[in-house]
């Protein structure tokens, strides 16, 4: 597969992941999932309710080529996240788990300490672990060492639509990462997804920006195109920034004007 996204030993021909939350209904969600071309789709876990609304599994299973990635949303500790991941694996039939542990209900920022512990244990259990993390280059390396299949740093807070607020840290994180870096959370516009890909991200995960768009399926397609464009630009090699510095006195006169 040409330029496939390699994740935990599996290949995917799309670099856009989508989340299934916040859609008005299942039909809008599945339409967006199809339009996005995403191969990896995140889902959450919940206790079964009698008044259970729509069944999610059936409509998602009807879309060919989808891999379900259960998340651990709702977990506040490593123990809870590990348990959620085990349950998720029974339901999804996939080795992937998106570890998210965000105890603070207001900003939903990830707890790096519990996240690291959960990832360490899940990687040992054979999961393909995808942790949602703050854009912290050191934490990313610690998670890589712990055996994660990728890292998913946030662009800005979940659902905030504030874009790549963490760009500077993302740059450092991507620069030294040995596993794919997938920006998760905070994106609002497809141009931000393209920018993340140009920067060297291996993929992006988008949920709110698609789910709450006026036309979710059309927005999903727009994100898909942006991710492709950004990736293509990255591979094409962006032009260098001009060096703007202009020293007041010549720095290279000691070379006597010679050039190689």
């Amino acid at each position: 597969m040409k330029d496939a996204l390699l994740l935990g030993g599996y290949e995917f021909d799309s670099r856009l992941m989508i989340g299934t939350g916040k859609f008005s209904d299942v039909a809008a969600m599945t339409a967006a999932a199809r339009a996005s071309g995403a191969r990896l789709v995140t889902v959450a876990l919940s206790r079964f309710h009698r008044a259970a609304s729509d069944d999610l599994y059936q409509p998602l299973a009807a879309i060919p080529g989808l891999t379900l990635v259960p998340n651990t949303s709702g977990a506040r500790t490593a123990d809870e996240a590990v348990r959620a991941a085990m349950l998720g694996r029974e339901l999804s039939g996939s080795p992937f788990v998106k570890v998210e542990i965000h105890p603070n209900p207001r900003h939903l920022l990830p707890d790096p300490i519990e996240t690291h512990e959960a990832c360490r244990r899940l990687a040992k259990e054979g999961f393909a672990v995808l942790p949602y993390i703050p854009a912290d280059p050191v934490l990313a390396k610690r998670l890589e060492d712990a055996g994660c299949a990728a890292v998913m740093p946030l662009g800005s807070a979940i659902g905030s639509g504030r874009g790549l607020q963490t760009a500077e840290m993302l740059r450092l994180l991507i620069q030294d990462s040995l596993v794919p870096v997938i920006v998760d959370a905070g994106l609002r516009a497809p141009s931000e997804a393209a920018a993340a890909m140009e920067m060297g991200c291996a993929g992006v995960l988008v949920n709110s920006a698609i789910a709450v768009a006026k036309n979710p399926a059309a927005m999903a397609a727009a994100f898909a195109a942006a991710v492709q464009a950004g990736r293509a630009a990255r591979l094409a090699g962006l032009m260098d920034c001009g060096e703007s510095a202009s020293p007041t006195s010549p720095l290279t006169s000691f070379l006597g004007g010679q050039e190689a």
Binding site: D240, A245, S246, P247, T252, E259
Partner: peptide
């Protein structure tokens, strides 16, 4: 590109950026 393709005149500019 910096090593091979940039013209000799670029050296001074590179020096300035390297110093910065």
């Amino acid at each position: 590109r910096l090593l091979r393709d940039d013209p000799p005149a670029a050296l001074e500019r590179m020096a300035g950026e390297a110093e910065r």
